[in-house]
């Protein structure tokens, strides 16, 4: 039974958040955890795509999203937000990047500002806990290929045509057999055969 805090207002994060924070194995306690996450968030903002383990990555993702949402809400003239950005981003030029590049990029966005994609696992292990964390709108090519089989690609066009031709020949064969059963004239048979060969050439 807790009463919600009313002194500060926060925007909703557009991702699933677990009820408890992860402690992230570290020797220095809560301060060490925050230090670790600071470095990760700085790296994410600097490189816009980083690969790391899922636990630290998810925590850093939450903090990065919170930082960006605070920057969007308050802008760069708001002292507490600037102080917060100064704390979280260890390289000071990234503070400028946050307010001048990322805020205009994400201002009118209705989805999350970051994306978390599962990375392939190392060979011969069962550990599947590598992820790629990236900011949306980053300059690198997409990791998720959206349409692996485009019908307009040349190999798919030729394959489609080949399948069509095969089907047509089968249909004509069946039709010819039906003609044989009902004892039609041989002229119709030969005409069908000629039609079949003509289609294959085209």
């Amino acid at each position: 039974m807790n009463q919600a805090e009313v002194s500060k207002l926060v925007s909703k994060l557009r991702m699933n958040i677990k009820p408890e924070h992860r402690r992230l194995k570290n020797l220095k306690g809560p301060e060490g955890r925050i230090d670790k996450l600071r470095k990760t968030v700085t790296g994410l903002i600097k490189f816009e795509r980083i690969e790391l383990n899922i636990n630290r990555g998810d925590e850093a993702r939450q903090y990065a999203e919170r930082l960006i949402s605070e920057a969007i809400r308050h802008g760069d003239c708001h002292k507490p937000t600037m102080d917060m950005a100064n704390f979280w981003l260890l390289e000071k030029q990234l503070v400028h990047k946050l307010f001048k590049v990322l805020v205009p990029r994400f201002e009118n966005s209705t989805v999350s500002y970051t994306k978390m994609i599962k990375a392939p696992k190392a060979q011969n292990t069962e550990h599947t806990n590598k992820i790629v964390l990236e900011l949306r709108g980053n300059p690198y090519p997409d990791l998720i290929v959206k349409q692996p089989n485009n019908r307009l690609w040349i190999q798919n066009v030729l394959l489609d045509a080949a399948k069509y031709d095969y089907r047509q020949s089968k249909i004509s064969e069946i039709a010819a057999n039906i003609g044989k059963d009902t004892q039609l004239s041989s002229s119709s048979l030969t005409a069908n055969n000629k039609g079949g060969t003509q289609k294959e050439e085209s």
Partner: peptide, 22 residues
């Protein structure tokens, strides 16, 4: 003293109800 606590964004978030829900 825990001076890093005031910068802990997720701790603040978990204690507040976000604006949209409010």
């Amino acid at each position: 003293k825990t001076p890093w606590e005031k910068y802990d964004l997720m701790k603040q978030y978990r204690k507040t109800i976000p604006i949209e829900e409010q």
